[in-house]
């Protein structure tokens, strides 16, 4: 237990000592989001910027406004959305690219964060991490298909069900197990990523298996650390939603506040995501040190 707490804190320490990287990840997110949001903004401005309906809709969720907009300008809007798929694909690739540098930096090989080393590591590990991402993407799809099948056992037709409580209990049981397996795959993936960067071998199979092996050998510690991070995420989201529910974006001030809170929340989410990798790296490192001490 003590070593798990140690891992958690050293993971946090590693994350904060690489704050430049955290900022970089955030900056990339903002940059790509602006690529989607700015064309929307100019389209929105030119199509109905002078309509009083725009300001009238400030004080509530205005279904009429949104629907009239989609009915009248849906075509232009969908063109803007279509462009964003391209942005999304680019963002995914860039995120995989950054992963090598992120893990390399978090592994704490250097005393200070270095952008030069960061970019070198990004470049060095890109193809292997891309392969790993694709494999895990396929795992996720496979898992989803299996659970859809399990969920459908006994039929999904409401006419076959005795009561609607059956649906609830099915969602609870199947959903619960599904989330457990999703968490498991995510854990495998985190530790595999660290192993891929750490071992630096051409073929990723050994590293990926080593990641799975490590997770199984230290299952409870891994799960505990994973749950801690999920709780971080849930807590942040809860606080964010609670605060956001307190006000409408009905004035310049509240709009600015919503933007600010949103950025803090997103920055925090990115931190939690990085923390997962940081903790996985620390976990492997601490375990290694302990075993070498015994030897």
């Amino acid at each position: 237990m003590r070593s798990v707490i140690t891992v958690l804190f050293s993971g946090l320490k590693a994350l904060f000592s690489n704050w430049e990287m955290w900022l970089l990840v955030y900056g990339v997110n903002v940059f790509f989001a602006l690529f989607v949001a700015l064309p929307f903004n100019s389209f929105f401005k030119s199509s109905l910027g002078n309509s009083l309906a725009v300001n009238e809709s400030l004080n509530r969720f205005d279904y009429t406004f949104i629907s009239d907009f989609l009915n009248e300008y849906g075509l232009g809007f969908s063109q803007v959305l279509n462009q964003s798929y391209f942005v999304l694909a680019l963002f995914l690739l860039l995120s995989v690219f950054l992963m090598g540098g992120i893990i390399d930096s978090l592994l704490g090989k250097r005393a200070e964060f270095s952008f030069k080393a960061f970019w070198t590591a990004c470049h060095h590990h890109f193809w292997r991490l891309l392969r790993l991402t694709i494999y895990y993407f396929l795992f996720h799809i496979g898992l989803l298909l299996i659970f859809v099948q399990i969920f459908s056992i006994g039929g999904l037709s409401p006419f076959e069900l005795e009561t609607d409580a059956d649906v609830i209990s099915r969602v609870q049981w199947v959903g619960g197990f599904y989330l457990f397996f999703v968490a498991l795959i995510m854990m495998f993936q985190d530790y595999a990523k660290v192993k891929v960067v750490q071992t630096d071998e051409r073929w990723i199979t050994n590293s990926a298996l080593a990641g799975i092996g490590f997770t199984f050998r230290h299952f409870f510690a891994c799960m505990f650390l994973f749950i801690i991070q999920v709780l971080f995420f849930v807590f942040m989201t809860f606080v964010y939603i609670t605060i956001r529910k307190q006000f409408f974006m009905s004035s310049e001030g509240t709009i600015l506040l919503a933007l600010f809170l949103g950025q803090i929340y997103l920055f925090g989410r990115m931190g939690v995501k990085l923390l997962r990798l940081s903790i996985a790296g620390e976990h492997i490192r601490v375990y290694k040190e302990e075993t070498s001490k015994h030897i």
Partner: peptide, 16 residues
């Protein structure tokens, strides 16, 4: 309608 336009921009940005 600057305020309204900004609201939808911020919402869209956050969603993205």
């Amino acid at each position: 309608q600057a305020t309204g336009i900004r609201k939808y921009f911020v919402n869209f940005l956050l969603a993205a």
